[in-house]
Design a protein around this nucleic acid. Structure first.
Length: 235
RNA sequence: CUGUGGUGAAG
């Protein structure tokens, strides 16, 4: 247990060969040691190394668990490995109970979103027993990435109705969609509504996001106006 | 309450 914490720490710091050595030297390697290692590889974007570990697990008699799958599905997404990802998803589906895990579900949604496979993403979403903001953001990001800007906005409205509390990423996706559609006014209106109605404490980050989008969309004037309006020091 | 997992693109 203590050794696993060490592995995790080393892996998080990017000392991956050291982490691997520690795992190798363990008298009993369990699934947690390997999960930590895999998560480390992914954190440092060594996705194929993560996949290699994943394939190695059964060989040494370890059964991947829900943690392993959540990580490895993310790796498949980052690698653009859609076949591998779907293959692993099929294994997960065969495993019944895993399918209802929200974190794993979110990871799957994110993966399908990056592949532009909205139908699959939606299916995973619909099967889940519950959703949190990460799940919803993954789905919204998928819509956005596939150019379904109206769907982003509609879903956002629905989500507000259902009392979800959007976070910074939600705003980025929403505002991005608005501006993509050329709906600058709507975007800013949502922004202002959110700023006042919804009990969200807007930070300088939120403003930065909208300002950035205005600037990028070629509306420097509006960006400057916003900077002057915001209740912070410009930084 | 022994340790490990999830949320887009751009910059």
């Amino acid at each position: 247990v203590i050794a696993n914490s060490l592995v995790d720490m080393l892996a998080k710091c990017g000392m991956l060969s050291e982490a691997r050595e520690v795992v190798k030297g363990l008298p009993v390697q369990d699934v947690v040691s390997w999960n930590s290692l895999i998560a480390g590889y992914i954190k440092h974007e060594l996705f194929d190394e993560a996949l290699r570990c994943f394939e190695q697990m059964p060989v040494i008699g370890l059964t991947p668990d829900v943690f392993t799958f959540a990580s490895i599905i993310k790796a498949c997404g980052s690698l653009g490995a859609s076949c591998k990802g779907q293959e692993i998803h099929a294994d997960i589906a065969r495993n019944g109970p895993l399918e209802t895990d929200m974190v794993l579900g979110t990871s799957l949604i994110g993966m399908y979103a990056t592949f532009g496979m909205l139908k699959e993403a939606q299916e995973v979403f619909d099967e889940l027993p519950g959703w949190d903001m990460a799940t919803l953001n993954a789905l919204l990001a998928g819509y956005s990435q596939s150019g379904k800007d109206e769907l982003v906005v509609n879903t956002f409205v629905k989500l507000i109705d259902e009392n979800y509390k959007p976070d910074l990423l939600t705003f980025k996706i929403l505002l991005d969609a608005c501006i993509h559609m050329g709906l600058l006014d709507e975007g800013q209106r949502y922004f202002e509504t959110m700023n006042t109605t919804i009990a969200t404490n807007f930070t300088v980050e939120h403003y930065t996001c909208l300002i950035d989008l205005f600037g990028r969309a070629g509306h420097l004037h509006r960006a400057v106006l916003l900077i002057m309006e915001m209740p912070f020091h410009a930084n």
